[in-house]
Amino acid sequence: MRQTELHLSEEARSIVDGIRAKGVHRSREVNRAHILSCLDRGIPESQILDVLGVGRTAVWRTRAAYLQGGVDLALFDLERCGRPRQYDTDAQARVTALACSTPPAGRQRWTMLELERVARQEPGLQGVSRETVRRMLKKTTSNPGAG
């Protein structure tokens, strides 16, 4: 199989080497940086597959993305369509802390209805629904009702 040659520009090479060397990056980005670096050095595709443990399509897609749109398109995922998150992690943490607090007088534990009512009084959570509160709490590993 004939491999398409790929030569990185100096700027692209420094970006790729920076991702490979340090910082906190997603594993996909690091793998893609390794792939681009290997392709730039002329390492055969079969060897890249064996050493990095990636699939052939990952190499093909990374190469094609670089040739089509440069290093940013090859390394980083594009923004996906869809509705952005309405509540950030801070809001989720406040709801979780509320659920872990002592329940209202006369109750042994919080109910979803009571949590929703109290969460709506928090700043930034005025429109939160009971289902949203339930989903936020489902993501946590705490279970204050058990025990």
Results as ranks from 00 to 15, higher is better:
His7Thr: 14
His7Asp: 12
His7Pro: 07
Ser9Gly: 08
Glu10Asp: 11
Glu10Gly: 14
Glu10Phe: 15
Glu11Pro: 10
Glu11Asp: 05
Ala12Gly: 07
Ala12Gln: 06
Arg13Ile: 08
Ser14Asp: 12
Ser14Gln: 13
Ile15Met: 08
Ile15Val: 07
Val16Met: 04
Asp17Ile: 12
Ile19Thr: 03
Ile19Lys: 02
Arg20Phe: 07
Ala21Phe: 13
Val24Tyr: 15
His25Phe: 09
His25Leu: 05
Ser27Thr: 08
Ser27Lys: 14
Ser27Tyr: 10
Arg28His: 06
Arg28Glu: 10
Glu29Asp: 06
Glu29Tyr: 05
Val30Asn: 02
Val30Phe: 08
Asn31Met: 05
Arg32Trp: 04
Ala33Gln: 05
Ala33His: 01
Ala33Asp: 00
His34Cys: 13
His34Val: 08
Ile35Lys: 04
Ile35Ala: 02
Ile35Cys: 03
Leu36Tyr: 01
Ser37Arg: 10
Ser37Asp: 06
Leu39Lys: 00
Leu39Glu: 00
Asp40Trp: 01
Arg41Val: 12
Arg41Gln: 14
Ile43Asn: 03
Pro44Glu: 11
Pro44Phe: 09
Glu45Met: 15
Glu45Ile: 11
Ser46Tyr: 15
Ser46Lys: 15
Ser46Asn: 14
Ser46His: 15
Gln47Cys: 07
Gln47Ser: 07
Leu49Gly: 01
Asp50Cys: 09
Asp50Thr: 10
Asp50Glu: 09
Asp50Met: 14
Val51Tyr: 15
Val51Ala: 13
Leu52Glu: 02
Val54Ile: 05
Val54Trp: 05
Gly55Thr: 05
Arg56His: 10
Ala58Pro: 05
Val59Tyr: 01
Trp60Leu: 13
Thr62Glu: 02
Thr62Cys: 11
Arg63Ser: 03
Arg63Tyr: 05
Ala64Cys: 08
Ala65Pro: 00
Tyr66Asn: 01
Gln68Cys: 06
Gln68Arg: 04
Gln68Pro: 04
Gly69Tyr: 00
Gly69Met: 06
Gly70Thr: 03
Val71Trp: 04
Asp72Asn: 04
Ala74Leu: 01
Ala74Phe: 01
Ala74Asp: 05
Leu75Pro: 02
Leu78Thr: 10
Glu79Lys: 14
Glu79Ser: 03
Arg80Asp: 08
Arg80Glu: 09
Arg80Ile: 12
Cys81Gln: 11
Cys81Ser: 12
Cys81Phe: 14
Gly82Glu: 02
Arg83Asn: 13
Pro84Lys: 12
Pro84Val: 08
Tyr87Trp: 06
Tyr87Asn: 00
Tyr87Phe: 09
Asp88Pro: 14
Thr89Glu: 14
Thr89Gly: 08
Asp90Arg: 04
Asp90Pro: 06
Ala91Pro: 02
Gln92Ile: 11
Ala93Asp: 06
Thr96Asn: 12
Thr96Val: 15
Thr96Pro: 06
Ala97Thr: 14
Ala97His: 13
Leu98Phe: 14
Leu98Val: 06
Leu98Lys: 09
Leu98His: 11
Ala99Leu: 09
Ser101Val: 07
Ser101Cys: 13
Ser101Pro: 03
Pro104Val: 01
Gly106Asp: 02
Gly106Trp: 02
